[in-house]
Amino acid sequence: MPPHPETWLRVTPDGLFCEPGGFFVDPVRPVERAVITHGHSDHARPGHAHVLATKETLAIMRARMGEDRAGATQQAHPYGETLTINGVKLWLRPAGHVLGSAQVCLEWQGARAVISGDYKRRHDATCAPFEPERCDVFVTEATFALPVFTHPPAGQEIARLLRSVALFPERTHVIGCYALGKAQRLISLLREAGWDQPIPLHGALMKLCTLYEELGVQLGPLTQATVAGKERLAGAIVLAPPSAIADRWARRLAEPIPCLASGWMRVRQRARQGGVELPMVISDHADWPELLATCTEVEAQEVWVTHGREEALIHALAQRGIRGRALHLIGRGEGEEE
């Protein structure tokens, strides 16, 4: 009988450790060998000796941390190709979260575990779509694991934004969004909706947008928001980090309307904090129905929940005959940063 993954895949203070393979997945402290699912800072930390990830994730890590801190040796590994490390088979499947994001699939002595990292199931032209992989244990996130979180179609949220731009053509709509993934997805959604004007960006978003383009994701014309005059920003849609949209930086904009794109915007009280005037429910995480559907689709007998609202998810999985277990990994909050 194949060994249960809990005998060879263990939760340690440094993160999830594959014992026979001798490597960690998304460790929170510098380790000898790390496999990284994607480039967000709560998954990709600096200072590991050996890093294995997709070439896109490695490029993102280098861009964010600097060449020398993104792993002393870096091994780019393409989706779908199998590698054997001390008898552990390892391969990557797209997670659909951000560019380069991967699920880490492990198999040892016939038992298979899939560590999904963060993932979503919606269309996103800026990264490869999620591919389900059948497994015995599925390790899932639970950022939006409450039934109140059902993300509306992203196109509907973009349409609402464009209606607001038409109603207030003399003002700047400034969307608060995370620099990696969300910003590029918003740009791509705007382009799909026919918005072909140059999109002015806060300086903090420029580097990763440029990198996305170098990696083959077309974003259309982008400009620096800081160099445009106020009158040129009237009627523009500007992207900036969430902390900037209602702060001093936003004073350069034309009577800005602060918008925020996040799955948290689904709940009014959350949306009303921080002076947001146009909340947009657009998320790079799976919503409640997608979490449940994915856990069922991979046919796992057991689901491990890394971070988020595990209580509701474990309860709902139990009703579907799937055993759930909360991992309580250190270093992942409630996924507040989206």
Binding site: L146, P147, V148, F149, T150, R266, V267, R268, Q269, R309, E311, A312, H315, A316
Partner: peptide, 18 residues
């Protein structure tokens, strides 16, 4: 699931709507 949701959202009408 209703109790967990209501606890998180805080408003009955909004919880039901969501």
């Amino acid at each position: 699931l209703f109790a967990l949701s209501y606890d998180y959202v805080g408003d009955l009408a909004e919880t039901i709507a969501l």
